[in-house]
Amino acid sequence: MSDEQATGSSDAALVAGEYVLGVLSAAERRAFEARMVREPALRTEVEYWEQRLGVLASELKPIDPPPEIWANIDTALTEKAARSGLWQNLAFWRWATVGSAAVAAASLLALGYTVHIPTPNAPLIAKLESTAGQPGFIAAIDSAGAGLTVVPAAATEVNQRVLQLWLIAPGDHPRSLGLIEPGRPIHINLPADLMQRVAAQATLAVSVEPPGGSPTGLPTGPVIASGKLTKL
């Protein structure tokens, strides 16, 4: 191949390589990132080069950053959490959960199920958000601690895949609570061995899995929403 041919190629895959390599200007980088949003196939190209070229970073000798860096990160995250307004949040979600539990119960009743209706003062709730802060699901543990109602807060596209709900108790690996529906509320009876792990500070998370659920018993796909159980 001549230099001329290589230079003349406007192949998007090639630009993905240039982007990962880091040779583009600031304006070219922003333009490519905007294009990547419109053309998801480019994301795959970028991931290809990140994985392949990434091994070059193993040449770099690790350098310990100064100890105050972690403290700065920790402080920044704490301030961010405080700014998001815990009180407003709690009040809003308390209201939302009561409403959603009723919706969940009603839709299950309509399907002919016998439902244990979660009490309005359910002790534990979690709002499962995407990392971008978008609401994903609301989960409420019923007052007896035996069941869990999960209500989608927004539409989720799953494209031939399924959503699996996981419980992660502090220090424990994720444990499956079963598959949930992207488009409607669902009530899950907690397996007896998991009931004791359901407590404040445990995390609920939803991952995208192949049909039938994770083949490994641990999450294999991306986590689309997660949140901690909180006492109301």
Binding site: L60, I63, P65, D74, L77, T203, A205, S226, K228
Partner: peptide
């Protein structure tokens, strides 16, 4: 991803020297 700050601290401990480099 589940919001565990302790997990972030461990991740930082294990990877920050590489990323700082």
């Amino acid at each position: 991803a589940g919001g565990d700050r302790g997990a972030l601290r461990l991740l930082y401990r294990d990877t920050s020297a590489k990323l700082f480099a």
